[in-house]
Design a protein around this nucleic acid. Sequence first.
DNA 1: TTAGGTGTTTGATAAATATCAAGGGGATGA
DNA 2: TCATCCCCTTGATATTTATCAAACACCTAA
Lengths: 232, 232
Amino acid sequence: MPESDYPDIRGLHLFKDMADEHFLSLTRGAYVQNFPPQIELITEGDPSDFLHILLSGSVDLFSTWNGRETSMATVRPISTFILAATIRDAPYLMSARTLEKSRIALIPSQDVRSVFDGDNSFARAIVTELAQCYRSVVKNTKDLKLRTSLERLANYILRQQNRRGGASEFDLDFEKRRLASFLGMTPENLSRAFKGLQPYGVTVNGNRISIDNQKDLERFAKPSPLIDDVST
Amino acid sequence: MPESDYPDIRGLHLFKDMADEHFLSLTRGAYVQNFPPQIELITEGDPSDFLHILLSGSVDLFSTWNGRETSMATVRPISTFILAATIRDAPYLMSARTLEKSRIALIPSQDVRSVFDGDNSFARAIVTELAQCYRSVVKNTKDLKLRTSLERLANYILRQQNRRGGASEFDLDFEKRRLASFLGMTPENLSRAFKGLQPYGVTVNGNRISIDNQKDLERFAKPSPLIDDVST
DNA sequence: TTAGGTGTTTGATAAATATCAAGGGGATGA
DNA sequence: TCATCCCCTTGATATTTATCAAACACCTAA
Protein backbone atom coordinates (compact mmCIF):
# COMPACT_ATOMS: atom_id res chain seq x y z
CA MET A 1 0.00 0.00 0.00
CA PRO A 2 1.53 3.32 -1.07
CA GLU A 3 2.44 5.66 1.77
CA SER A 4 0.64 8.52 0.08
CA ASP A 5 -2.63 6.88 1.04
CA TYR A 6 -1.76 6.71 4.72
CA PRO A 7 -2.98 10.15 5.76
CA ASP A 8 -6.43 9.71 4.26
CA ILE A 9 -7.02 6.45 6.04
CA ARG A 10 -5.34 7.50 9.24
CA GLY A 11 -7.66 10.49 9.32
CA LEU A 12 -10.74 8.32 9.51
CA HIS A 13 -12.39 8.31 12.87
CA LEU A 14 -11.87 4.56 12.88
CA PHE A 15 -8.07 4.75 12.76
CA LYS A 16 -7.39 8.13 14.28
CA ASP A 17 -6.65 7.13 17.85
CA MET A 18 -4.99 3.78 17.41
CA ALA A 19 -1.34 3.09 18.15
CA ASP A 20 1.09 3.69 15.30
CA GLU A 21 2.41 0.18 15.43
CA HIS A 22 -1.07 -1.25 15.08
CA PHE A 23 -1.88 1.04 12.23
CA LEU A 24 1.27 -0.14 10.53
CA SER A 25 0.41 -3.77 11.00
CA LEU A 26 -2.93 -3.08 9.35
CA THR A 27 -1.45 -1.27 6.40
CA ARG A 28 1.34 -3.80 5.98
CA GLY A 29 -1.00 -6.45 4.72
CA ALA A 30 -3.24 -3.99 2.94
CA TYR A 31 -3.20 -2.98 -0.64
CA VAL A 32 -4.81 -0.28 -2.70
CA GLN A 33 -6.41 -0.81 -6.04
CA ASN A 34 -8.11 1.27 -8.70
CA PHE A 35 -11.28 -0.11 -10.15
CA PRO A 36 -13.17 0.93 -13.28
CA PRO A 37 -16.89 1.70 -13.05
CA GLN A 38 -19.46 -1.06 -12.73
CA ILE A 39 -17.12 -3.63 -11.24
CA GLU A 40 -18.60 -5.98 -8.70
CA LEU A 41 -16.21 -5.78 -5.77
CA ILE A 42 -18.10 -8.02 -3.42
CA THR A 43 -20.80 -10.62 -3.84
CA GLU A 44 -23.21 -11.24 -1.01
CA GLY A 45 -22.71 -14.59 0.62
CA ASP A 46 -18.96 -14.57 0.08
CA PRO A 47 -16.69 -14.78 3.12
CA SER A 48 -15.58 -11.35 4.29
CA ASP A 49 -11.89 -11.48 3.52
CA PHE A 50 -11.26 -7.76 3.43
CA LEU A 51 -12.38 -4.61 5.10
CA HIS A 52 -12.87 -2.14 2.28
CA ILE A 53 -12.07 1.55 2.48
CA LEU A 54 -13.27 3.79 -0.29
CA LEU A 55 -10.63 6.45 -0.96
CA SER A 56 -12.20 8.04 -4.03
CA GLY A 57 -15.10 7.37 -6.36
CA SER A 58 -18.35 5.82 -5.18
CA VAL A 59 -19.73 2.39 -4.48
CA ASP A 60 -23.23 1.00 -4.45
CA LEU A 61 -24.21 -1.57 -1.86
CA PHE A 62 -27.04 -3.73 -3.13
CA SER A 63 -28.77 -6.99 -2.47
CA THR A 64 -30.57 -9.54 -4.54
CA TRP A 65 -33.13 -12.24 -3.95
CA ASN A 66 -35.06 -14.39 -6.34
CA GLY A 67 -34.02 -12.40 -9.38
CA ARG A 68 -34.85 -9.05 -7.80
CA GLU A 69 -32.31 -6.44 -6.82
CA THR A 70 -32.39 -3.45 -4.53
CA SER A 71 -29.94 -0.70 -3.74
CA MET A 72 -29.24 -0.57 -0.02
CA ALA A 73 -26.83 2.35 0.28
CA THR A 74 -24.25 4.43 -1.49
CA VAL A 75 -20.77 4.68 -0.06
CA ARG A 76 -18.84 7.90 -0.53
CA PRO A 77 -15.23 8.67 0.29
CA ILE A 78 -13.66 8.43 2.67
CA SER A 79 -15.31 5.63 4.53
CA THR A 80 -15.22 1.95 5.22
CA PHE A 81 -17.80 -0.58 4.23
CA ILE A 82 -18.66 -4.12 5.21
CA LEU A 83 -17.36 -3.54 8.71
CA ALA A 84 -19.89 -5.75 10.50
CA ALA A 85 -19.17 -8.79 8.34
CA THR A 86 -15.45 -8.32 8.95
CA ILE A 87 -15.92 -8.13 12.68
CA ARG A 88 -18.12 -11.16 12.92
CA ASP A 89 -16.15 -13.11 10.32
CA ALA A 90 -19.48 -13.76 8.66
CA PRO A 91 -20.51 -13.74 4.99
CA TYR A 92 -21.30 -10.43 3.34
CA LEU A 93 -25.00 -9.57 3.44
CA MET A 94 -24.72 -7.08 0.60
CA SER A 95 -22.92 -6.96 -2.70
CA ALA A 96 -20.89 -3.94 -3.74
CA ARG A 97 -20.11 -2.46 -7.12
CA THR A 98 -18.25 0.64 -8.20
CA LEU A 99 -20.42 3.38 -9.66
CA GLU A 100 -17.49 5.27 -11.09
CA LYS A 101 -13.74 4.87 -11.24
CA SER A 102 -12.84 4.18 -7.63
CA ARG A 103 -9.77 3.81 -5.48
CA ILE A 104 -10.16 1.31 -2.72
CA ALA A 105 -7.95 0.08 0.10
CA LEU A 106 -8.34 -3.52 1.14
CA ILE A 107 -7.30 -4.62 4.61
CA PRO A 108 -7.35 -8.34 5.35
CA SER A 109 -10.21 -9.00 7.75
CA GLN A 110 -7.99 -11.27 9.78
CA ASP A 111 -5.66 -8.36 10.48
CA VAL A 112 -8.56 -6.13 11.47
CA ARG A 113 -9.78 -8.70 13.95
CA SER A 114 -6.42 -9.29 15.51
CA VAL A 115 -5.53 -5.63 15.82
CA PHE A 116 -9.01 -5.07 17.17
CA ASP A 117 -8.21 -7.63 19.89
CA GLY A 118 -5.00 -5.86 20.81
CA ASP A 119 -5.82 -2.18 20.42
CA ASN A 120 -8.50 -0.78 22.68
CA SER A 121 -8.89 2.58 21.09
CA PHE A 122 -9.38 0.82 17.78
CA ALA A 123 -12.00 -1.45 19.33
CA ARG A 124 -13.78 1.56 20.75
CA ALA A 125 -13.70 3.40 17.47
CA ILE A 126 -15.25 0.38 15.81
CA VAL A 127 -18.02 0.30 18.37
CA THR A 128 -18.88 3.91 17.73
CA GLU A 129 -18.82 3.39 13.99
CA LEU A 130 -20.98 0.27 14.18
CA ALA A 131 -23.49 1.94 16.45
CA GLN A 132 -23.74 4.71 13.89
CA CYS A 133 -24.25 2.21 11.06
CA TYR A 134 -26.89 0.40 13.06
CA ARG A 135 -28.79 3.58 13.69
CA SER A 136 -28.67 4.49 10.01
CA VAL A 137 -30.27 1.20 9.04
CA VAL A 138 -32.94 1.57 11.71
CA LYS A 139 -33.79 5.01 10.36
CA ASN A 140 -33.98 3.57 6.90
CA THR A 141 -36.40 0.89 8.07
CA LYS A 142 -38.59 3.51 9.67
CA ASP A 143 -38.54 5.50 6.46
CA LEU A 144 -39.64 2.42 4.51
CA LYS A 145 -42.33 1.25 6.87
CA LEU A 146 -43.88 4.50 7.99
CA ARG A 147 -43.89 6.52 4.79
CA THR A 148 -45.39 6.25 1.34
CA SER A 149 -43.07 6.50 -1.62
CA LEU A 150 -44.05 10.12 -2.20
CA GLU A 151 -43.19 10.97 1.39
CA ARG A 152 -39.90 9.13 1.13
CA LEU A 153 -38.97 11.09 -1.95
CA ALA A 154 -39.95 14.40 -0.38
CA ASN A 155 -37.82 13.67 2.66
CA TYR A 156 -34.96 12.45 0.52
CA ILE A 157 -34.97 15.74 -1.32
CA LEU A 158 -34.89 17.65 1.95
CA ARG A 159 -32.00 15.51 3.24
CA GLN A 160 -30.02 16.12 0.08
CA GLN A 161 -30.70 19.80 0.38
CA ASN A 162 -29.35 19.74 3.91
CA ARG A 163 -26.20 17.97 2.81
CA ARG A 164 -25.59 20.83 0.41
CA GLY A 165 -26.00 23.51 3.01
CA GLY A 166 -29.60 24.33 2.22
CA ALA A 167 -29.30 25.38 -1.41
CA SER A 168 -32.68 25.62 -3.06
CA GLU A 169 -31.30 24.06 -6.24
CA PHE A 170 -29.00 21.11 -6.63
CA ASP A 171 -28.18 18.12 -8.82
CA LEU A 172 -29.03 14.58 -7.92
CA ASP A 173 -25.79 12.77 -7.47
CA PHE A 174 -26.83 9.54 -9.05
CA GLU A 175 -29.03 7.91 -11.62
CA LYS A 176 -32.73 8.15 -11.08
CA ARG A 177 -33.21 4.45 -11.41
CA ARG A 178 -30.78 3.82 -8.60
CA LEU A 179 -32.47 6.46 -6.52
CA ALA A 180 -35.76 4.69 -7.22
CA SER A 181 -34.29 1.39 -6.09
CA PHE A 182 -32.84 2.97 -2.97
CA LEU A 183 -36.20 4.51 -2.12
CA GLY A 184 -37.93 1.17 -2.69
CA MET A 185 -39.85 2.03 -5.84
CA THR A 186 -39.70 1.53 -9.59
CA PRO A 187 -38.14 4.11 -11.96
CA GLU A 188 -41.57 4.73 -13.47
CA ASN A 189 -43.01 5.56 -10.10
CA LEU A 190 -40.13 7.80 -9.18
CA SER A 191 -40.85 9.76 -12.30
CA ARG A 192 -44.48 10.10 -11.30
CA ALA A 193 -43.54 10.88 -7.73
CA PHE A 194 -41.47 13.85 -8.87
CA LYS A 195 -44.56 15.13 -10.63
CA GLY A 196 -46.58 14.44 -7.55
CA LEU A 197 -44.34 16.86 -5.65
CA GLN A 198 -44.95 19.72 -8.07
CA PRO A 199 -47.92 20.97 -6.03
CA TYR A 200 -45.47 21.35 -3.14
CA GLY A 201 -43.09 23.45 -5.17
CA VAL A 202 -40.59 20.90 -6.42
CA THR A 203 -39.41 21.25 -10.00
CA VAL A 204 -37.24 18.69 -11.76
CA ASN A 205 -35.26 19.27 -14.88
CA GLY A 206 -33.05 16.35 -15.79
CA ASN A 207 -30.89 15.85 -12.74
CA ARG A 208 -31.55 19.32 -11.36
CA ILE A 209 -33.97 19.68 -8.47
CA SER A 210 -35.35 23.05 -7.43
CA ILE A 211 -37.26 23.64 -4.29
CA ASP A 212 -39.48 26.60 -5.01
CA ASN A 213 -41.50 26.46 -1.86
CA GLN A 214 -39.50 25.24 1.08
CA LYS A 215 -42.30 25.63 3.60
CA ASP A 216 -44.84 23.71 1.53
CA LEU A 217 -42.45 20.87 0.91
CA GLU A 218 -41.58 20.62 4.59
CA ARG A 219 -45.21 20.74 5.56
CA PHE A 220 -45.84 17.78 3.30
CA ALA A 221 -42.66 15.82 4.08
CA LYS A 222 -42.78 16.27 7.85
CA PRO A 223 -39.10 15.45 8.29
CA SER A 224 -38.16 14.00 11.64
CA PRO A 225 -34.72 14.02 13.26
CA LEU A 226 -35.33 10.43 14.32
CA ILE A 227 -35.50 9.36 10.68
CA ASP A 228 -33.79 12.02 8.64
CA ASP A 229 -30.89 13.38 10.64
CA VAL A 230 -27.70 11.90 9.33
CA SER A 231 -25.49 12.45 12.34
CA THR A 232 -27.38 11.36 15.45
CA MET B 1 -30.22 -4.66 42.21
CA PRO B 2 -30.83 -7.99 43.90
CA GLU B 3 -27.96 -10.43 43.77
CA SER B 4 -30.25 -13.18 42.55
CA ASP B 5 -30.35 -11.45 39.19
CA TYR B 6 -26.57 -11.39 38.81
CA PRO B 7 -26.12 -14.83 37.23
CA ASP B 8 -28.65 -14.21 34.45
CA ILE B 9 -27.03 -10.98 33.42
CA ARG B 10 -23.50 -12.18 33.94
CA GLY B 11 -24.28 -15.09 31.64
CA LEU B 12 -25.05 -12.80 28.71
CA HIS B 13 -22.41 -12.80 26.04
CA LEU B 14 -22.08 -9.09 26.64
CA PHE B 15 -20.96 -9.43 30.25
CA LYS B 16 -19.43 -12.87 30.33
CA ASP B 17 -15.78 -12.00 29.88
CA MET B 18 -15.55 -8.71 31.68
CA ALA B 19 -13.62 -8.20 34.91
CA ASP B 20 -15.54 -8.80 38.13
CA GLU B 21 -14.86 -5.35 39.43
CA HIS B 22 -16.25 -3.77 36.30
CA PHE B 23 -19.31 -5.96 36.40
CA LEU B 24 -19.84 -4.85 39.96
CA SER B 25 -19.53 -1.21 39.10
CA LEU B 26 -22.21 -1.73 36.45
CA THR B 27 -24.58 -3.51 38.79
CA ARG B 28 -23.98 -1.09 41.63
CA GLY B 29 -25.83 1.69 39.88
CA ALA B 30 -28.34 -0.64 38.30
CA TYR B 31 -31.76 -1.53 39.47
CA VAL B 32 -34.33 -4.11 38.56
CA GLN B 33 -37.98 -3.42 38.17
CA ASN B 34 -41.13 -5.38 37.37
CA PHE B 35 -43.48 -3.83 34.88
CA PRO B 36 -47.10 -4.69 34.11
CA PRO B 37 -48.11 -5.32 30.50
CA GLN B 38 -48.55 -2.48 28.03
CA ILE B 39 -46.27 -0.06 29.82
CA GLU B 40 -44.27 2.30 27.66
CA LEU B 41 -40.74 1.93 28.95
CA ILE B 42 -39.05 4.17 26.46
CA THR B 43 -40.22 6.88 24.13
CA GLU B 44 -38.32 7.51 20.94
CA GLY B 45 -36.48 10.79 20.98
CA ASP B 46 -35.77 10.65 24.69
CA PRO B 47 -32.14 10.69 25.84
CA SER B 48 -30.81 7.18 26.40
CA ASP B 49 -30.34 7.20 30.15
CA PHE B 50 -30.35 3.45 30.67
CA LEU B 51 -29.25 0.31 28.98
CA HIS B 52 -32.17 -2.08 29.37
CA ILE B 53 -31.86 -5.79 29.95
CA LEU B 54 -34.96 -7.90 29.67
CA LEU B 55 -34.84 -10.66 32.30
CA SER B 56 -38.30 -12.09 31.77
CA GLY B 57 -41.43 -11.23 29.84
CA SER B 58 -41.31 -9.62 26.42
CA VAL B 59 -40.98 -6.16 24.98
CA ASP B 60 -42.03 -4.61 21.70
CA LEU B 61 -39.81 -2.07 20.01
CA PHE B 62 -41.85 0.23 17.81
CA SER B 63 -41.67 3.55 16.04
CA THR B 64 -44.12 6.21 15.08
CA TRP B 65 -44.29 8.99 12.56
CA ASN B 66 -47.09 11.28 11.56
CA GLY B 67 -49.70 9.34 13.48
CA ARG B 68 -48.60 5.96 12.11
CA GLU B 69 -46.95 3.26 14.12
CA THR B 70 -44.93 0.20 13.20
CA SER B 71 -43.48 -2.65 15.19
CA MET B 72 -39.74 -2.92 14.63
CA ALA B 73 -38.78 -5.95 16.72
CA THR B 74 -39.71 -8.07 19.67
CA VAL B 75 -37.23 -8.50 22.48
CA ARG B 76 -37.16 -11.80 24.37
CA PRO B 77 -35.24 -12.71 27.49
CA ILE B 78 -32.46 -12.61 28.20
CA SER B 79 -31.15 -9.80 26.10
CA THR B 80 -30.33 -6.14 26.09
CA PHE B 81 -32.00 -3.47 24.05
CA ILE B 82 -31.21 0.06 22.99
CA LEU B 83 -27.49 -0.66 23.06
CA ALA B 84 -26.55 1.58 20.15
CA ALA B 85 -28.23 4.65 21.62
CA THR B 86 -26.48 4.02 24.93
CA ILE B 87 -23.10 3.75 23.25
CA ARG B 88 -23.49 6.86 21.17
CA ASP B 89 -25.22 8.78 23.93
CA ALA B 90 -27.87 9.60 21.35
CA PRO B 91 -31.66 9.75 21.58
CA TYR B 92 -33.61 6.51 21.28
CA LEU B 93 -34.75 5.80 17.74
CA MET B 94 -37.44 3.40 18.88
CA SER B 95 -39.99 3.28 21.66
CA ALA B 96 -40.43 0.22 23.83
CA ARG B 97 -43.42 -1.21 25.61
CA THR B 98 -43.94 -4.34 27.63
CA LEU B 99 -46.13 -6.97 25.99
CA GLU B 100 -46.59 -8.93 29.17
CA LYS B 101 -45.49 -8.68 32.78
CA SER B 102 -41.76 -8.10 32.47
CA ARG B 103 -38.72 -7.92 34.67
CA ILE B 104 -36.14 -5.47 33.46
CA ALA B 105 -32.71 -4.43 34.67
CA LEU B 106 -31.71 -0.85 34.07
CA ILE B 107 -28.06 0.12 33.94
CA PRO B 108 -27.24 3.81 33.75
CA SER B 109 -25.86 4.53 30.28
CA GLN B 110 -23.15 6.66 31.77
CA ASP B 111 -21.84 3.63 33.67
CA VAL B 112 -21.94 1.49 30.55
CA ARG B 113 -19.92 4.05 28.65
CA SER B 114 -17.30 4.46 31.34
CA VAL B 115 -16.86 0.75 31.97
CA PHE B 116 -16.72 0.31 28.22
CA ASP B 117 -13.81 2.74 28.16
CA GLY B 118 -11.96 0.84 30.84
CA ASP B 119 -12.72 -2.80 30.09
CA ASN B 120 -11.52 -4.17 26.80
CA SER B 121 -13.29 -7.47 26.84
CA PHE B 122 -16.50 -5.60 27.52
CA ALA B 123 -15.80 -3.28 24.60
CA ARG B 124 -15.15 -6.23 22.37
CA ALA B 125 -18.31 -7.99 23.45
CA ILE B 126 -20.26 -4.86 22.62
CA VAL B 127 -18.73 -4.75 19.17
CA THR B 128 -19.77 -8.30 18.47
CA GLU B 129 -23.27 -7.68 19.76
CA LEU B 130 -23.67 -4.48 17.77
CA ALA B 131 -22.41 -6.11 14.60
CA GLN B 132 -25.02 -8.79 15.13
CA CYS B 133 -27.76 -6.21 15.64
CA TYR B 134 -26.65 -4.34 12.56
CA ARG B 135 -26.80 -7.47 10.46
CA SER B 136 -30.28 -8.27 11.75
CA VAL B 137 -31.59 -4.91 10.65
CA VAL B 138 -29.95 -5.25 7.24
CA LYS B 139 -31.64 -8.62 6.78
CA ASN B 140 -34.92 -7.07 7.77
CA THR B 141 -34.49 -4.32 5.19
CA LYS B 142 -33.79 -6.90 2.51
CA ASP B 143 -36.89 -8.81 3.56
CA LEU B 144 -38.96 -5.64 3.25
CA LYS B 145 -37.57 -4.41 -0.04
CA LEU B 146 -37.14 -7.64 -1.94
CA ARG B 147 -40.24 -9.57 -0.97
CA THR B 148 -43.98 -9.17 -1.26
CA SER B 149 -46.04 -9.42 1.88
CA LEU B 150 -47.03 -12.99 1.05
CA GLU B 151 -43.39 -13.97 0.68
CA ARG B 152 -42.50 -12.23 3.91
CA LEU B 153 -45.18 -14.15 5.75
CA ALA B 154 -44.13 -17.47 4.22
CA ASN B 155 -40.53 -16.90 5.26
CA TYR B 156 -41.57 -15.71 8.69
CA ILE B 157 -43.43 -18.97 9.20
CA LEU B 158 -40.39 -20.96 8.16
CA ARG B 159 -38.17 -18.97 10.50
CA GLN B 160 -40.51 -19.58 13.40
CA GLN B 161 -40.58 -23.24 12.55
CA ASN B 162 -36.79 -23.31 12.67
CA ARG B 163 -36.75 -21.63 16.05
CA ARG B 164 -38.92 -24.46 17.34
CA GLY B 165 -36.68 -27.17 16.02
CA GLY B 166 -38.63 -27.83 12.85
CA ALA B 167 -42.00 -28.81 14.31
CA SER B 168 -44.69 -28.88 11.65
CA GLU B 169 -47.18 -27.30 14.06
CA PHE B 170 -46.66 -24.41 16.43
CA ASP B 171 -48.37 -21.42 17.99
CA LEU B 172 -47.68 -17.86 16.99
CA ASP B 173 -46.13 -16.19 19.95
CA PHE B 174 -47.84 -12.89 19.57
CA GLU B 175 -50.95 -11.11 18.40
CA LYS B 176 -51.63 -11.23 14.70
CA ARG B 177 -51.99 -7.50 14.48
CA ARG B 178 -48.52 -7.03 15.87
CA LEU B 179 -47.20 -9.64 13.50
CA ALA B 180 -48.86 -7.74 10.68
CA SER B 181 -47.21 -4.53 11.80
CA PHE B 182 -43.85 -6.24 12.09
CA LEU B 183 -44.18 -7.67 8.59
CA GLY B 184 -45.17 -4.27 7.25
CA MET B 185 -48.80 -4.96 6.41
CA THR B 186 -52.30 -4.35 7.79
CA PRO B 187 -54.09 -6.92 9.96
CA GLU B 188 -56.67 -7.38 7.20
CA ASN B 189 -53.99 -8.24 4.71
CA LEU B 190 -52.26 -10.61 7.08
CA SER B 191 -55.52 -12.45 7.39
CA ARG B 192 -55.75 -12.71 3.62
CA ALA B 193 -52.12 -13.63 3.31
CA PHE B 194 -52.62 -16.63 5.57
CA LYS B 195 -55.34 -17.76 3.21
CA GLY B 196 -53.05 -17.08 0.30
CA LEU B 197 -50.62 -19.62 1.74
CA GLN B 198 -53.21 -22.40 1.87
CA PRO B 199 -52.29 -23.59 -1.64
CA TYR B 200 -48.78 -24.14 -0.28
CA GLY B 201 -49.99 -26.28 2.57
CA VAL B 202 -50.25 -23.79 5.41
CA THR B 203 -53.27 -24.08 7.70
CA VAL B 204 -54.12 -21.56 10.38
CA ASN B 205 -56.45 -22.14 13.26
CA GLY B 206 -56.49 -19.29 15.73
CA ASN B 207 -52.88 -18.95 16.79
CA ARG B 208 -51.92 -22.41 15.62
CA ILE B 209 -49.99 -22.76 12.37
CA SER B 210 -49.58 -26.11 10.65
CA ILE B 211 -47.26 -26.71 7.78
CA ASP B 212 -48.77 -29.57 5.86
CA ASN B 213 -46.44 -29.44 2.92
CA GLN B 214 -42.97 -28.36 3.88
CA LYS B 215 -41.51 -28.69 0.38
CA ASP B 216 -44.23 -26.65 -1.27
CA LEU B 217 -43.94 -23.88 1.26
CA GLU B 218 -40.19 -23.75 0.89
CA ARG B 219 -40.45 -23.75 -2.87
CA PHE B 220 -42.69 -20.72 -2.63
CA ALA B 221 -40.84 -18.91 0.17
CA LYS B 222 -37.35 -19.45 -1.18
CA PRO B 223 -35.70 -18.77 2.18
CA SER B 224 -32.16 -17.45 1.99
CA PRO B 225 -29.53 -17.65 4.73
CA LEU B 226 -28.59 -14.06 3.89
CA ILE B 227 -32.04 -12.89 4.94
CA ASP B 228 -33.52 -15.55 7.15
CA ASP B 229 -30.73 -17.09 9.20
CA VAL B 230 -30.86 -15.69 12.69
CA SER B 231 -27.33 -16.42 13.76
CA THR B 232 -24.97 -15.36 10.96
C1' DT C 1 -24.42 14.36 -39.00
C1' DT C 2 -26.58 10.19 -38.10
C1' DA C 3 -27.50 5.68 -35.91
C1' DG C 4 -27.53 3.16 -31.68
C1' DG C 5 -27.78 2.72 -27.17
C1' DT C 6 -29.26 3.82 -22.74
C1' DG C 7 -31.92 5.98 -19.37
C1' DT C 8 -36.21 8.55 -18.58
C1' DT C 9 -40.97 9.63 -19.15
C1' DT C 10 -45.74 8.73 -20.33
C1' DG C 11 -49.99 6.20 -20.78
C1' DA C 12 -52.74 2.14 -20.15
C1' DT C 13 -53.47 -1.60 -17.43
C1' DA C 14 -52.79 -5.03 -13.77
C1' DA C 15 -51.55 -6.35 -9.30
C1' DA C 16 -50.76 -5.47 -4.55
C1' DT C 17 -52.04 -3.29 -0.59
C1' DA C 18 -54.92 -0.25 2.33
C1' DT C 19 -59.28 1.38 4.00
C1' DC C 20 -63.93 1.14 5.51
C1' DA C 21 -67.76 -1.26 7.27
C1' DA C 22 -69.82 -5.13 9.02
C1' DG C 23 -69.97 -9.64 10.97
C1' DG C 24 -68.06 -13.57 13.79
C1' DG C 25 -65.88 -15.87 17.67
C1' DG C 26 -63.56 -16.54 21.82
C1' DA C 27 -62.35 -14.82 26.32
C1' DT C 28 -63.75 -12.47 30.50
C1' DG C 29 -66.65 -10.99 34.12
C1' DA C 30 -71.15 -9.92 36.03
C1' DT D 1 -75.50 -18.15 31.34
C1' DC D 2 -75.35 -14.11 29.09
C1' DA D 3 -73.49 -9.74 27.80
C1' DT D 4 -69.53 -7.27 26.62
C1' DC D 5 -65.28 -6.45 24.72
C1' DC D 6 -61.63 -7.12 21.78
C1' DC D 7 -59.57 -9.06 18.12
C1' DC D 8 -59.84 -11.26 13.96
C1' DT D 9 -62.04 -12.10 9.59
C1' DT D 10 -64.64 -11.06 5.46
C1' DG D 11 -66.39 -8.39 1.66
C1' DA D 12 -66.54 -4.25 -1.04
C1' DT D 13 -64.01 -0.60 -2.56
C1' DA D 14 -60.24 2.81 -3.03
C1' DT D 15 -55.55 3.80 -3.29
C1' DT D 16 -50.98 2.79 -4.15
C1' DT D 17 -47.61 0.61 -6.63
C1' DA D 18 -45.92 -2.36 -10.39
C1' DT D 19 -45.82 -3.89 -15.11
C1' DC D 20 -45.82 -3.47 -19.96
C1' DA D 21 -45.30 -0.95 -24.11
C1' DA D 22 -44.12 2.90 -26.50
C1' DA D 23 -42.24 7.41 -27.15
C1' DC D 24 -38.75 10.60 -25.98
C1' DA D 25 -34.24 12.71 -24.77
C1' DC D 26 -29.66 12.57 -24.40
C1' DC D 27 -25.10 10.86 -25.23
C1' DT D 28 -21.62 8.64 -27.84
C1' DA D 29 -19.31 6.76 -31.68
C1' DA D 30 -19.04 5.86 -36.47
